[in-house]
Design a protein around this nucleic acid. Sequence first.
DNA 1: GTTGACATGTTATACTGTAACAGAATATCT
DNA 2: AGATATTCTGTTACAGTATAACATGTCAAC
Lengths: 162, 162
Amino acid sequence: MPRPHTFPSADHDHRHCLDEILTAAERLCRQRRARLTPRRRRVLEIVAESHAAIGAYDIIDRLAADGGRPAPITVYRALDFLMSQGLVHRLASLNAYVSCPQAGAEHGAQFLICHDCGAIGELADPGVEARIAEAAAHVGFEVAMPLVEIAGTCAECRRAAT
Amino acid sequence: MPRPHTFPSADHDHRHCLDEILTAAERLCRQRRARLTPRRRRVLEIVAESHAAIGAYDIIDRLAADGGRPAPITVYRALDFLMSQGLVHRLASLNAYVSCPQAGAEHGAQFLICHDCGAIGELADPGVEARIAEAAAHVGFEVAMPLVEIAGTCAECRRAAT
DNA sequence: GTTGACATGTTATACTGTAACAGAATATCT
DNA sequence: AGATATTCTGTTACAGTATAACATGTCAAC
Ligand SMILES: [Zn+2]
Ligand SMILES: [Zn+2]
Ligand SMILES: [Zn+2]
Ligand SMILES: [Zn+2]
């Protein structure tokens, strides 16, 4: 069961957090017989380095620092794989990618985007989806994939602003 | 007051519909002392030619057919103006633009995107926004701009599919 | 070990959107 | 009306995001 609301706290131990994300990814891919190759693992590691979203070309820059700049398609292919496994999400409003804090758990995608610190949270609120489906049904529309990306200010940044 | 849910019916008289959109735009811009220049009016006309979304470069192609292909920036500037007046919306999930069926009425933007026929509807459901704001508040997040783009199947296309 | 499926490399290209500056049109004020 | 300020448009160049097509390499199963 996904927790209904998550937002990364500013003071959490992200070393540990990152380690958990990678470990969970390895476990999930082993279970599914999906191949988390070194390249894909490295891309996930880069995306998960922070809870902010990162653009594909910034990922390329990070990989270039490892030695040998890969072509864009290489990174997009890795991202496609990671998204197909639910390990990474794409944020259409930012053209950027973020690691999923609840990889493996089936969940709709409702993102909270702090425009101050860049951190990304996820809501998995059944109520939101239900309300959307209900409103859509009033015009006979059947929802397939709701996309919800909410820009605003996170708790930390609101505290900092006062 | 905006109607809470709208979706363009497949059989409506779109000649008339388009005419209303343009007339309303002229009235609104006159009231606001905003300058709906021929260029901008023509771009709105092209965007409103159907209730599907259209890409910026497709708009350029349509303008080129009028004679004299404008530079991309020209169209983006017209779109920026039209969006600032609430006459056109941008759909981040499609990188495309759609005319607003309720221009002038203040309303949040929740879009219904039929992936079969391409038609775009709008919800202006206060319940959806409220539910989102409430869920966000649970993690201390303050919503500034919720973006909701819902892919699915419209009533017409569901009927046609059976 | 061969086969077949999947993953990566290489090159080129398509699509989407902006920066910077010059010139034209429109509004405003005397 | 004429000078001035503002806004709009044109022109050129470029930045940022994503994919096509085809060759090569790698891995697992048979
Ligand atoms: Zn973390
Ligand atoms: Zn923040
Ligand atoms: Zn219409
Ligand atoms: Zn449809």
